[in-house]
Nucleic acid binder design. Structure first.
Length: 365
RNA sequence: GGGUAGGUGGCGGAGCGGUCAAUCGCACUUGACUGUAAAUCAAGCAGCCUCAGGCUUUCGGGGGUUCGAAUCCCUCCCUACCCA
């Protein structure tokens, strides 16, 4: 499933091969929780050029539900998206919907955030849903606390996550199952989690439970202690991260896959990522050169420049001005969000393309 | 000409003797968002200062009552509707 092509320090360039195609890595997966990157059509995604999407087990289970998904050929059929899809297991909702759920060793009892209906998510159910969705990469159902977490909570998280990972593997089809390393900010627990999961054996390894409020340095430290314990012939996925510089730092530590709501959510809120020079990342992968601006600021009221003159996305190439986009935001025209989402997601995809290019071009043989 | 109801901060609109520099909504300003309950949320929004507090000018204009008024009285101006 994973093929390495080049290496620069610990940074790796390679490919993940799935039933729906090949994903060059390091890669960023835009988030289509409910089967759509918010505001974008497939034609937008085609222009953006992302090779894979992330969708969500919990949300798609609630709507449209398993019967519909079965009837329409899974999420690929429903969306008419023919490239790879990775599904998160619902583990994140155990965290984000904490007030609506009850944790048990067997699984998690939820009250639907939509109508309050009770459901019981287990590792087995999560696997079944992900198979019905037809995802190319499926995530084990996991559990993690927020930050800061007590050692006891972190230990509990590791134990439950390992136990559930076993059950996921026992249930699952043979290919495309990733496990998730937990352990909060405790280096030894991270190591223990990694070792237990590697022992079981998966197609890829994710690092989860990070970017939940801990200092960035703690996150980097956890990557430093975890990644050396993961098989180097399997893809490494840092879940939910993050800002461009965090992605670059993680790539330099050996991470291959990323997802994050930031580009799409920030776009909806009028915050856009901008080039400060033509190349986002230099040949040494030193840093990401960029800045963020709040388009809703009065500063842009009459700014007729294209949104980001150094960007090649369709929004910027079409010449939409900052003044126009600011106006669209101020009158709440939905076009604003589509145009900025196209831009921000394109920015992330370009960032990854540049990182891959730099690794491949300057790889040590 | 007569009658009735009103005139409050950018707008709408509370308040109807002290706890009012004035609820609230909108608009506006700035800032956050990290495996998406998020087209969301937070803060600010008379001026000034030695800024967990203090001071100065505000509730159509003017005058009065009162220890104290956006709130009561007189008067003027203006708006809406009704009657002639």
């Amino acid at each position: 499933m994973w093929t390495e092509q080049a290496r620069l320090g610990h940074a790796r360039a390679g490919t993940v091969t799935t039933a729906h195609g090949v994903v060059p890595t390091p890669a960023f997966m835009p988030i289509a929780t409910r089967g759509a990157v918010k505001h974008l059509a497939n034609s937008d995604l085609a222009q953006i050029g992302n090779d894979i999407l992330l969708a969500n087990t919990y949300h798609l289970y609630l709507r449209p539900g398993l019967e519909v998904l079965k009837a329409v050929g899974g999420l690929h059929g429903l969306m008419q998206w023919d490239k790879p899809i990775l599904t998160d297991s619902g583990g994140f909702q155990v965290f984000s919907l904490a007030h609506l759920r009850q944790l048990t060793p067997d699984g998690v009892r939820f009250n639907s955030h939509i109508d309050g209906a009770e459901l019981f998510m287990t590792p087995e159910l999560s696997m079944e849903i992900q198979q019905v969705i037809g995802s190319d990469i499926q995530m084990c159902f996991d559990y993690f606390p927020g930050f800061p977490a007590s050692r006891a909570d972190a230990e509990h998280s590791v134990a439950l996550t390992t136990q559930w990972a076993k059950r996921c593997k026992d249930y699952s089809s043979p290919h495309g199952l990733f496990a998730i390393v937990q352990g909060s900010s405790f280096a030894d627990l991270r190591q223990q989690s990694a070792q237990e999961l590697v022992q079981i054996g998966f197609d890829g390894y994710a690092i989860g439970g990070l970017a939940v409020g801990e200092p960035t340095e703690v996150m980097y430290a956890m990557l430093d202690t975890t990644i050396p314990l993961l098989p180097s012939d399997k893809p490494h996925y840092l879940m939910g991260v993050g800002q461009p510089e965090q992605i670059l730092e993680a790539v330099k530590r050996g991470v291959d896959l990323f997802d994050c709501v930031l580009p799409s959510r920030n776009a909806r809120h009028g915050q856009v990522y901008m080039h400060t020079q033509a190349e986002l990342v230099d040949t040494e992968l030193t840093a990401v050169q960029y800045r963020k601006i709040n388009l809703t600021s009065s500063e842009y009221k009459t700014d007729v420049q294209a949104l980001d003159p150094l960007c090649h996305c369709s929004t910027c190439q079409s010449g939409y001005s900052r003044a126009y986009l600011r106006h669209l935001f101020s009158v709440a025209e939905p076009l604003a969000q589509r145009l900025t989402t196209v831009h921000n997601v394109s920015f992330y995809i370009e960032l990854m393309r540049t990182i891959r290019h730099q690794i491949q071009t300057h790889a040590q043989s």
